[in-house]
Design a protein around this nucleic acid. Sequence first.
DNA 1: CGTAAACATCAAATCACGTTGATGCGCTGC
DNA 2: GCAGCGCATCAACGTGATTTGATGTTTACG
Lengths: 110, 110
Amino acid sequence: MPDSALEADALLQRFQAVAEETRFRVVQILASGERCVCDLQADLGGAAQSRLSFHLKKLKDAGVVCDRRDGRWVYYSLVPETLEEMRAFLGEVKPREGWLPVMRSDEGCC
Amino acid sequence: MPDSALEADALLQRFQAVAEETRFRVVQILASGERCVCDLQADLGGAAQSRLSFHLKKLKDAGVVCDRRDGRWVYYSLVPETLEEMRAFLGEVKPREGWLPVMRSDEGCC
DNA sequence: CGTAAACATCAAATCACGTTGATGCGCTGC
DNA sequence: GCAGCGCATCAACGTGATTTGATGTTTACG
């Protein structure tokens, strides 16, 4: 499991992409399926178009969403593998093995 | 499943907490178990103490980590339920049901 | 063609967030 | 009690991210 620096950076970027109010809501909306930008704009309560476009680009650059053009419309949807990757990171927490502080009281830690 | 606004805000806060370089690394480190601040400081390559303290507070306020005092040392560890909650959000993506654009070509979307 | 819709891009202004260095607080050992 | 360690808090500052409004691009339609 070579948690290379590059991969870690990419993963961090994915989290940064999702960790913003507008983008977070976009992800929630896309969870139910593909949407075109104007639909998203409506669902978000009429956000400025350039603003939404800016955020969608962030999500796309991070690999969280992908887009597909159909006529004049561009449809955005989530990338399952990316979300799975993020879930995996949050799952790497393998505690509950009787973990207690490395050093006890009178030993100190550093 | 009442995805109340309050809960959504709290969840967003958790993502914002993790989506920062230093805090991201702290979470990675804590994945292997409890650590005191000075240990973390060392693991992070000698980060300024106040800086680390600032980030730990962010993580704590978001409910991502919890702290425990033992003598002069304070030990930090991850909160499994919080990570599970975040994983759940990323898992709410239930596509792959033959999902295709709501409207087809000549129908338009909005 | 000419126009309009749906998005993307860009530059300027604004704002949020993290960093730094100083200071405060609780605990321990002398 | 006093000094020192481990950690938290605070205010000033700087940087990078987001917003806004204008402009550009692609596609569709008459």
